[in-house]
Design a protein around this nucleic acid. Structure first.
Lengths: 211, 211
DNA sequence: AGACATGTTGACCGCAGGGTCAAGTTATGG
DNA sequence: CCATAACTTGACCCTGCGGTCAACATGTCT
């Protein structure tokens, strides 16, 4: 790879990282190129697709952030504290970093490294949940699918609340957590989602085609 | 108004009602015209703006649906049952009717009749919440702003879950309600939103400009 | 029936997005 | 220092959106 190409790739990566984190994973590729100070043709040249760019720029970061949160949760002596702290931490990430808010939505199935991060996070969440359930502090009917549903619905509003300088999303998380403790538990009206249902749900989630 | 214009207006209203309820209040106006079988020029001619169309086609419907839910809630002898049923009912509306899911987002400030419906609903929610708080069954720190936050974040996923034939959103509502009963209550990390903050939050919510 | 007001139409504008590619430029190795 | 492979560029394609308007059609009233 020629030196100038390397320079351009670095600039593009930096611009992409900035914009993804400022405005989410759907920012226009032309705008990324604009901010990097190169032609959008060059972006397509060097990366080929938004997914490739995401994988290069966000996947590691997401892996670290989510991995840290999960590790901290499992390291916490009190399973409930671990679980609650994990949820709060992930929500915090969603509120402060739009890119991370978009990670869990699985809306970029072709970003393979990112999808791997999603899968790992899901497994980690299962462990965290399991531990808290076995402990008796987390209601037994709560599943990782339920957590994912909550996080996915929470992300957009948390993001704009944070952008508007508001903490209000923390309240929503607080209510939710109070509903997840065993003493509060009340029978649920329906079964948890299967992984297929989750996928379907999240991907269809926002980019509904026009037909 | 000429007879053909009246016919066209009726067709447009019908098409708009259909599409709003199928896909939400942001469907393209050209598509509404297409489905109505008239030129989009005619739509602009007869209605002038999306907001006018919304006001004509959705405002009443929303007023009735939300009003019924509120009335039923206040008529319920048990304040907690009334509150919980209200939340569940509104969520059901959001899940089954994308147009109603968009109503509470306040993303169409120029649709004045719709905005009035929002305001009324908010007041009604305050009464319902108040009654349940005074009853001692609803945690005292829960406000109408919190409910609005929940509903706004809930709507999109509930919609796509329902579209995918899934009931899973009911679980989320169940967890949330369990967190709202007084016995579950745990101190909250931050203050509720002011009306201004709500407005800001919801309107910025999804249509973030590119700049 | 005819004339005029009232409506309708679709081409057109500007914008922005994704994506491609021939032509031009520049780094690099011999 | 130059030949060439490697790279960049921006014009161009497509799509779809909101919105306007001159030219045309049609209902309506006398």
């Amino acid at each position: 790879m020629r030196a100038d190409a390397q320079r351009n790739a670095a600039r593009l990566r930096a611009a992409a990282a900035d914009l993804f984190q400022e405005r989410g994973l759907q920012v226009s590729l032309k705008e990324i190129a604009r901010r990097a100070g190169v032609s959008h043709g060059t972006l397509y040249n060097l990366f080929g697709s938004r997914e490739a760019l995401i994988d290069e720029v966000i996947a590691d970061l997401a892996a670290v952030r989510l991995g840290d949160a999960a590790r901290a949760a499992l390291a916490c002596p009190d399973p409930w504290q671990g679980f609650a702290g994990y949820v709060a931490e992930v929500c915090e990430l969603q509120a402060t970093d739009p890119a991370l808010g978009d990670v869990l939505t699985r809306r970029f199935p072709d970003a393979s490294r990112l999808m791997a991060v999603c899968d790992n996070s899901y497994s980690a969440a299962e462990s965290i949940i399991d531990r808290a359930r076995r402990d008796g502090s987390l209601r037994p009917d709560f599943t990782a699918a339920d957590l994912l549903f909550f996080l996915a619905s929470h992300a957009p509003l948390a993001r704009s609340a944070a952008a508007a300088g508001s903490d209000s999303w923390r309240r929503a998380v607080g209510f939710m957590l109070d509903g997840l403790r065993t003493p509060a538990a009340t029978p649920l009206p329906t079964a948890p989602m299967t992984p297929q249902q989750i996928n379907h749900l999240l991907i269809e989630g926002s980019a509904t085609p026009a037909g």
